[in-house]
């Protein structure tokens, strides 16, 4: 926190001393004033972005986890879906954005779709890794208890996979923010991405910086939300202990 304040101080001093034009790099004080005065606008536009991020990410979770689960249990499904999944991932999704506008217009739908596409992959891959990390002996144990596939999934596989799944969530949520902003960049009439494009067009660098700050805040907020959820869902894992015993190794 202190280091951050120092940086801001140096920034402010440098900009003032060398008299850097505002359209290049505005002083932090100017940005702060902007944040304060234009507060309602930013709040309203972030709401548009946030809704898209939440819906897109939720969709990615709702489709990604069942998809990974199906891939575990059905060889046929795994072989069928994997090439499609990989193609969708290596393809630069930004390139799709203009198409989305042609197909779906400027509303919420293309933003959600982009967010979904970009955050889907890490969730599937990490869920897959997690579900596969179950030890065969554990499954044999369940079979010897006369347990069903359903029980082994809910009692063993899914809880075992949770740390991996949350790892995927953390990557995916940061991607989701990027996905929404990119979609807003390319074509939208609302959201922080739209504000960015608009401000840049007007050489209003102060607003650009202010919007970026809002984006950082939103990114942090979502990331911490995932971390809190992780702490609620995962208990008794030895991560803390191994950190302590490993003494930073």
């Amino acid at each position: 926190m202190l280091s951050l304040l120092c940086c801001l101080g140096v920034w402010e001093a440098t900009v003032r001393y060398f008299d850097v034009p505002v359209y290049l790099i505005p002083a932090p004080s100017l940005i702060a004033t902007k944040l304060m005065t234009a507060y309602p606008l930013f709040l309203q536009e972030s709401l548009h972005s946030v809704i898209s991020i939440i819906i897109g990410f939720t969709l990615a979770v709702a489709v990604g986890i069942p998809a990974a689960t199906l891939m575990i249990y059905s060889e046929w499904f795994r072989r069928g879906i994997y090439p499609i999944l990989l193609t969708a991932q290596v393809l630069p999704k930004v390139a799709l954005a203009p198409l989305f506008i042609v197909w779906f217009g400027f509303g919420l739908l293309p933003k959600v779709l982009m967010t979904f596409l970009i955050s889907f992959f890490p969730i599937v891959i990490d869920t897959l890794t997690g579900l596969n990390s179950v030890r065969p002996e554990s499954l044999m144990l369940i079979r010897s208890m006369g347990g069903s596939r359903w029980q082994s999934f809910w009692k063993i596989r899914l809880p075992t996979a949770l740390p991996s799944i949350f790892g995927g969530f953390k990557v995916a949520i940061t991607f989701a923010v990027v996905g929404t902003i990119v979609a807003e960049f390319v074509g939208s009439d609302h959201g922080l991405g739209y504000i960015l494009v608009l401000a840049r067009g007007n050489l209003d660098t102060v607003t650009v910086f202010a919007a970026i700050l809002w984006l950082i805040a939103i990114g942090f907020l979502f990331y911490f939300a995932v971390e809190v959820a992780e702490r609620i869902f995962i208990r008794g894992r030895a991560a803390r202990r191994s950190h302590e015993l490993g003494a930073g190794l």
């Binding site: 030890r135 002996e137 554990s138 044999m140 144990l141 369940i142 010897s144 208890m145 006369g146 347990g147 029980q151 009692k155 063993i156 809880p159 075992t160 995962i234 208990r235 008794g236 894992r237 030895a238």
Partner: peptide
């Protein structure tokens, strides 16, 4: 049947007692 493997195969997120009772839950 009851089986004990070389590795305990306990579930990390369950207490000792809950691990023992897994047998009962699954059945």
């Amino acid at each position: 049947v009851g089986i004990v493997f070389q590795t305990p195969e306990l579930l990390d997120w369950r207490t000792a007692q809950e691990n023992v009772l897994l047998q009962i839950e699954i059945r």
